[in-house]
Design a protein around this nucleic acid. Structure first.
Lengths: 232, 232
DNA sequence: GTCTATATAGGGATAGAC
DNA sequence: GTCTATCCCTATATAGAC
């Protein structure tokens, strides 16, 4: 909480923050293209003119939100145990759980900024910075997934060739990137307006299911136990 | 070729067809939302007014194109060999090739109407018929993939539990549905405007890779042989 | 910093002449 | 059937008062 006595700078910042927060909510609910600056202003009980005092244009709002998203989601997974797997569990149950954890972290970020995924094509076509940065994120994610898989292979928790791992990583990215869209598409129309209770568990389950068949022995069984909750 | 002597009915139909064809091209190239009726008319060297003589509104064009897409893509896969697998190859190599074939067929349809996939969210949110019908297609595809997998299990070409098959089918649908989007997203900006040479082989390869790890013995080897071309 | 009023532009769609 | 002209609405963005 900032003190109120600080003058106008803080008020300005607070208003900017309110605009960003409301924009994010509306964008996620109805899609960026279907939200006008007027709607944002109205939702905040402020005039459209005032909104434009704080942001040059709508795209600046999008860019700002994307920057936050990027900051939040562009983190590397926990450094893998490497060769240091405990002797009593050389197949690394920790590695599997790290994967679940990392996956959930990513999915939460994607859920909170899901408007970006709703119209990826148009957003990236309109805005070259966004296209560039988004692809950079994907590049890093691909590398991260491949590295995690290679680690699993190293500790014999997974059996897969390098080619299989690359293909697998791509599919992991695709499913992770678009699952929430698919989920929304599948939902009955009534629920779509409401917008929410996105089921991240289901998303994580679907992604892990891509990896599962390559897991070996105890690691596979460990995964099956963890994912049992999500089988319909 | 229709005879010219037939009067105006044919001319009308031909113009409608030209409008649809041009709309499809432009929609695929730039996205439905980014194509105005004016652009369509101009591309055809006709006036906007004339376009509206043939179609009540833009959405009618979209609906008509969707109907064609639906007709083309909503076909069932070849009836599986069932118990009638040849004695010398009980693992059914035919079944694997049928799968490839069916997959290519579907992907071609999706490529030719890819504008539908570009903004699935908005299109289905705007148009409830589209939402309904699209989901009906997905339902059938899910059932078809599950049936194909169950057949493979029956002839021992695949090892998978019913739960695994359901999860697998969902992932197959997601990857098939969104792979072309992913591909476009990954392409450098220069190529995106041009719009094309969509690599369906890569798409098919990625989808088949989902199924591969569940294939058993000779069927797995058969798949590996077929997909070898696509390994980077 | 916030408001009201308005400029500006684009796109969907219609009217009416030919 | 096709064209020209235009209406109408919506959305972004700005000007200027308070």
């Amino acid at each position: 909480m900032a003190a109120k006595a600080d003058g106008n700078t803080i008020r300005t910042e607070r208003t900017r923050a309110r605009i960003l927060a409301e924009s994010l909510t509306l964008f996620n609910e109805r899609g960026e293209a279907n939200v006008t600056t007027g709607m944002i202003a109205e939702a905040l009980g402020m005039s459209p003119g005032n909104l434009y005092y704080h942001f040059r244009n709508k795209d600046e709002i999008v860019e700002r939100l994307f920057a936050r998203f990027e900051e939040r989601v562009d983190v590397q997974p926990a450094a893998p145990a490497g060769g240091a797997a405990p002797r009593d569990a050389p197949w690394g149950p920790g590695a599997i759980e790290d994967l679940w954890l990392y996956l959930h972290l990513m999915l939460e970020g994607m859920r909170d900024y899901r408007f970006l995924y709703r119209n990826l094509d148009d957003l990236t076509a309109r805005n070259s910075r966004l296209h560039l940065h988004f692809n950079r994120i994907v590049d890093r994610k691909l590398a991260a997934v491949e590295a995690l898989c290679e680690d699993l292979v190293r500790v014999r928790a997974m059996r897969a060739t390098p080619a299989e791992i690359r293909t697998l990583a791509r599919n992991v990215l695709v499913v992770a990137t678009y699952w929430l869209n698919f989920q929304a598409l599948r939902a009955p129309r009534a629920k779509r307006a409401v917008g929410d209770e996105v089921d991240l568990g289901e998303a994580a389950y679907q992604v892990m299911a891509l990896i599962a068949p390559y897991l070996a022995g105890a690691a596979r069984r460990h995964h099956d136990r963890l994912s049992r909750h999500y089988i319909d």
